Computed example of a mutant assay.
Amino acid sequence: MGMDLALSGKRVLITAGTKGIGRAVTELFREQGAKVLATARSQPSDFPKELFIGADLTTIEGCNALADEVNERLGGLDIIIHVLGGSAAPAGGFTALSEEIWQQELNLNLFPAVRLDRALAPAMLAQGAGVIIHVTSIQHELPLPESTTAYAAAKAALSTYSKSLSKEVSPKGVRVVRVSPGWVETEASVDLIKRLADQAGTDLEGGKKIIMESLGGIPLGRPSTPAEVANLIAFLASPLAASITGTEYVIDGGTVPTA
């Protein structure tokens, strides 16, 4: 993104900020001059040490430890970007989803945002300014019953929580916005493409076609890139979007068939 988004000096936390969408967000905010901290369970060898905080955000203890370290290193935040999410649930429909799997999906896709907002947003309210961005998913509108029921439900809960939070804190100067990606071509999705292609005896383009067909088609004809999602997030977090709060922005190449 070539334009100045007036993010220089902003204190920013990005969860899952070392890979995929999160890494693209981290790099873009750094380019814009923000003071960035990124968190993940482990630090990639090529990720700057001074930007990294290791934490397991699926636990209460991990969230609390991260909040403490963020406050120690930055003295508070101006922007929180919750990218963390994903699913390890098996295929097989609702009967394949055990109590443990349901809890895992909620622990990964909902509770980290709830816990970190609870720990870090009060300081934003005290300063009368801040932005919280929750990355949801089009799956909460287009769940795939065979494989994404629990993930989609957790993201739906995150979206509802985000909307309610926006109503509470926006009058006090803190904006809350949701970004809802469709299929994004991250490292993880490329691995999935390869697996599907091998199973179907086709090439990478054939693997992409399998995914697009499972989603009912992507009118744009391709997945989004992490950089494209990062561009949207950066704009929404910037002062250029100062009157935007409580809404959800879909970036999916037209996958969701309704307006």
Rank of each mutant, 00 (worst) to 15 (best):
L37R: 11
G130W: 01
M3R: 14
S98D: 08
L116G: 11
G128S: 10
E205Y: 09
Q32D: 06
A157N: 05
A16W: 03
V256Y: 13
L57N: 02
A156S: 14
H140E: 15
P122R: 05
T59P: 09
V229T: 09
E105N: 10
L37F: 09
T136W: 09
S224C: 15
V229S: 02
T258Y: 15
F52G: 11
L232D: 07
T58W: 05
T149H: 01
Q103R: 14
Y249N: 13
S162Q: 01
G54S: 15
L110Q: 00
D68P: 00
I218V: 15
N109V: 04
K155V: 12
V169Q: 00
L5D: 08
P90Q: 04
S45F: 01
Q103D: 14
S243R: 15
T136M: 01
L204W: 15
G93I: 09
G201Y: 07
G93Y: 06
S170W: 06
F235S: 04
E69Q: 07
G206I: 13
I81Y: 02
A200R: 14
A96T: 05
E69A: 11
A234Y: 03
Q127L: 10
A6G: 07
P112S: 12
S98V: 07
L144R: 13
S180F: 04
E205H: 13
T225F: 07
G206D: 07
P171C: 03
T247R: 10
P239H: 12
G85H: 11
Q127D: 09
Q43K: 15
Q199L: 14
K35H: 12
T148P: 03
K172E: 15
N231H: 14
K209N: 11
V25W: 08
G201M: 06
E100Y: 02
I233E: 05
